[in-house]
Simulated scan of single mutants.
Amino acid sequence: MMAEVNMWMVRAGQGGRQADEFREKAHVGIGWEEIGDLSAFADKASLVQEYRSRFPDWPDGRRLSAASQLIRFRDEMAAGDRVLTYDSSRRIYHVGTITGEYRHDTAVLPPCENVRPVEWQAELDRDRLSLAARNSLGSTLTLFRISDAVREEIEALVSGQAAAPVAVEEQDDGEDEEALLKRYREEAVEIIKDRVSRLDAWEMQSLVAGLLRAMGYKTRESSPGPDRGVDVIASPDGFGFESPRIVVEVKHRPHTTMGAQEVRSFLGGRHGDDKGLYVSTGGFTKEARYEADRAKIPLMLMDLNGLVTALMEHYDHADSETRALVPLTRLFWPA
């Protein structure tokens, strides 16, 4: 009888910021507060005790959740198991296979120095998953086992088959009340990102212009046609005569990552006093971010995460045109 093959979610840090590192180094990593080599702990109880002595102010549920996930990473995951991690800036899941045992790698920056080697094999757009599957993957836990129903849907999509949407019951992976509230908030943010992604290119340009107006600027948008790399001009007077003059390029290509060449092209026509904002809903490569860091003018790269975060932060000051593009409402939340 063949051994059961599990599929695991291992989150790549807040917002999936370590997803590129996971892929480049062919591993997944986990850890909290630089706990060190997990081989030093006999079992979960000894790890909980370590957290209790080091972090006496933590609630019991938080200590237990952290210890449980670390022990699962060390003892329950196995070579041959499938693994998933999420890059929220590009809205894709990386899918791979665990190829070896747990090890403590001091060459990896803490707290993710507890690693397992992985052969990354596929990427899966979040939009291709059923709503039930997306909700199931929304747990705030750094590590959890994916249900068989969702695993089967993912494997079918990765192999090119037409996967029938599966009704999935939510899993109870030991999340306490605080973690559940965090999970619901993060799921709501992902749904907002889904809706923003469904805007067309001109609506996205208008949304970015509306965000800048909500921040106190006046804006001018380019008309359809060649724009010479400028989609929006934002300034105090609306004409670009007064400083700061913010020149904005908007690329709404959810599945296309902007690289260094695109950033260089945008910078090529800028004046010395300009400020640059480059919005890409498909995210940016590391080379593009390096190009922005060394630019001769102040330049901010904004991916979908940054756009939605800024929109929520300034939504109260948004005009009716902007609100109509992405209707949101506030709700009461347990303190």
Results as ranks from 00 to 15, higher is better:
240 G>L: 07
242 E>T: 14
223 S>Y: 11
205 Q>E: 05
205 Q>H: 09
236 P>K: 14
254 P>F: 01
194 D>T: 15
240 G>C: 08
192 I>F: 05
211 L>D: 00
212 L>M: 09
235 S>N: 05
248 V>H: 06
214 A>W: 10
256 T>C: 02
255 H>V: 10
253 R>C: 00
257 T>C: 07
203 E>D: 03
215 M>Y: 13
201 A>N: 13
237 D>M: 09
249 E>W: 06
195 R>W: 06
227 D>L: 01
199 L>I: 10
211 L>P: 05
239 F>Q: 14
219 T>G: 05
250 V>G: 00
244 P>K: 08
242 E>F: 14
212 L>R: 14
232 V>R: 07
198 R>E: 04
214 A>R: 11
231 D>C: 05
259 G>H: 09
232 V>T: 09
208 V>E: 00
238 G>N: 06
229 G>W: 02
242 E>R: 15
224 P>R: 10
191 I>D: 10
195 R>G: 02
205 Q>D: 01
200 D>T: 12
245 R>T: 14
251 K>Q: 10
247 V>C: 08
208 V>P: 01
208 V>A: 01
229 G>T: 09
220 R>F: 12
193 K>W: 05
252 H>Q: 02
200 D>Q: 09
256 T>F: 03
253 R>D: 00
248 V>L: 04
237 D>I: 13
252 H>I: 02
230 V>R: 11
259 G>C: 04
231 D>A: 01
216 G>T: 13
215 M>C: 14
244 P>R: 07
247 V>P: 12
198 R>V: 10
203 E>K: 13
222 S>Q: 13
249 E>A: 09
238 G>H: 07
216 G>V: 12
242 E>Q: 14
253 R>N: 00
209 A>K: 11
254 P>L: 00
237 D>E: 07
209 A>G: 12
218 K>A: 07
257 T>Y: 08
228 R>L: 12
256 T>V: 10
227 D>S: 03
221 E>W: 02
226 P>I: 11
191 I>G: 10
229 G>Y: 04
202 W>I: 12
214 A>L: 08
201 A>I: 11
250 V>D: 02
210 G>Q: 01
203 E>A: 06
217 Y>E: 03
227 D>H: 06
206 S>Y: 05
